[in-house]
């Protein structure tokens, strides 16, 4: 039995996950908590956010995020893909900044207009 705090939403439910019982989740207040509990112990993932250089805009950095969660173990490799990337304004929220991050099929996208 493993105790986890759900990070799906700010409520932070205290989950108990039973590895012996096919990762049966209790303590969750919604179905997403159940999914998180199973995933976190079998295949943990995170959405990663960072910034890249941008010239010609209001600010010298443009915020980016992965457009889907990526495996937790790839976080540092993923942010390294952003080193050296330089955008030129105009940038629109949703623009693809780096496609197929570390072979995951997930892209880094811009999260604001600049």
């Amino acid at each position: 039995m493993k105790e986890l705090i759900c990070i799906v939403c700010p409520k932070g439910c205290h989950l108990q996950v039973d590895e012996a019982q096919d990762y049966h989740v209790t303590g969750n207040h919604c179905p997403r908590g159940e999914e998180y509990g199973k995933m976190e112990l079998t295949h943990p993932t995170r959405v990663v956010t960072s910034t890249v250089r941008c010239t010609g805009g209001t600010h010298p950095r443009c915020p980016v995020k992965t457009d889907a969660p990526i495996p937790k173990g790839l976080i540092f490799q993923a942010v390294r893909c952003l080193d050296g990337v330089e955008l030129t304004a105009p940038v629109h929220a949703g623009d693809i900044v780096v496609p197929d991050v570390c072979g995951t099929g997930v892209s880094f996208i811009a999260t604001r207009d600049l």
């Binding site: 705090i5 759900c6 990070i7 939403c9 700010p10 932070g12 937790k72």
Partner: peptide, 12 residues
């Protein structure tokens, strides 16, 4: 802070 931030910002 929020529990989720303890997990995803410190524990991770």
């Amino acid at each position: 802070g929020l529990n989720r931030n303890i997990v995803q910002c410190l524990h991770d």
